[in-house]
């Protein structure tokens, strides 16, 4: 890869790390049936962003991000609370939180826009970054995030397996559901907020959803699924970034999404576990066996008839 600019290298390295972290976290969200959490939380972050701005009176990215994280965490906790205390399903709960929090955010935004001071322009989109604009500091941040996620996954791997598969049994043998839930939510919120300030909402949602789903088509083991998901996430990040450097004016973020989608399509068709191609091959094989059996039967019958 000669001729890559410094900016390109920073983006490549950052996307490799972010993609890996998102791939891992996305697996957890997948099994908790909360794949769309990133979109829900990106919307739930709005009230926090607006309040962060309103308190200071001017735009300060760190303060607004802190507000975003707090607001998103509250939203995530609310989704869990709804799930625990009512019959409402995951996607409905996320939809409710998304609209309630975002609606609240819009209300606050409206009030803030009537404030006499200036600087409110672009408030709702201000914290969303773009992949191409990542710099050296982002590389360090993403590496740290990936390291933390990896550490958490490796250290308590069997605890995650149990918690995701059978939380009631887990509680029974003393694994605190609350602790796992808190750890999971914190991890998710941190990745989502850091991710959307770096690359925006759409790309972050794509990285949290697509690699995990793609990995499912290749394996039957939870550990392997995690590893593949991380690989696909990082791979999509790198591939998309590299391709976007080849053309003039090609937007980096969207190309990463396309790369991820490409990986998904390949998995859908060729995945060893449930891929369409493999299924077609299996069906062909079964048909062949059936025909063979029929031929044998006919041959035997004929043989008997002749004797």
């Amino acid at each position: 890869m000669t001729g890559l600019t410094h900016n390109a290298l920073w983006v490549l390295a950052s996307m490799l790390m972010l993609g890996t972290a998102a791939g891992l976290a996305g697996c957890f969200a997948y099994w908790k049936r909360q794949s769309l959490m990133s979109d829900a939380l990106a919307h739930a972050a709005l009230p926090g962003v607006v309040i962060g701005f309103a308190i200071l009176g001017f735009k300060s990215l760190p303060v607004m991000l802190l507000g975003a994280a707090a607001s998103a965490l509250l939203g995530a906790w609310a989704v869990t609370a709804i799930r625990a205390h009512s019959r409402v399903k995951e996607d409905t709960a996320m939809g409710i939180i998304l609209s309630v929090f975002f609606g609240l955010g819009i209300m606050l935004l409206t009030m803030v826009n009537r404030m006499p001071g200036g600087g409110q322009s672009g408030l709702n989109g201000f914290i969303f970054g773009q992949a191409a604009a990542m710099v050296r500091q982002d590389m360090r941040t993403m590496t740290a995030v990936a390291a933390v996620v990896l550490l958490v996954v490796l250290i308590s791997f069997k605890e995650w397996k149990l918690y995701l598969f059978d939380p009631a049994f887990a509680r029974g043998i003393g694994l605190s559901g609350r602790l796992m839930e808190a750890a999971y939510l914190t991890l998710l919120v941190v990745i989502i907020v850091i991710g959307i300030q770096a690359v925006g909402v759409i790309l972050m949602a794509a990285l949290l959803i697509i690699p995990a789903v793609s990995a499912r088509y290749w394996t039957n083991a939870f550990g392997t699924m995690l590893a593949l998901s991380a690989l696909f996430g990082g791979g999509a990040g790198v591939a998309g970034t590299y391709v976007s450097t080849l053309g003039d004016g090609w937007p980096t973020g969207p190309f990463i999404v396309i790369a991820a989608a490409g990986i998904f399509l390949l998995s859908l068709v060729f995945g060893r576990r449930k891929g369409l191609f493999v299924k077609a091959m299996q069906r062909r094989e079964q048909k062949r066996r059936l025909e063979l059996r029929a031929v044998r039967r006919d041959a035997l019958a004929e043989g008997e008839a002749m004797s």
């Binding site: 709804i82 609209s99 309630v100 609606g103 819009i106 826009n113």
Partner: peptide, 26 residues
């Protein structure tokens, strides 16, 4: 729990109406 669920739904509906009504700015 049941009334919480209902309250949430009502709140969501009200806030969505407000959001549609007030638009993105003032």
């Amino acid at each position: 729990s049941k009334s919480t669920g209902q309250a949430f739904a009502l709140l969501a509906a009200m806030l969505m109406l407000v959001a549609c009504g007030s638009g993105a700015g003032g």
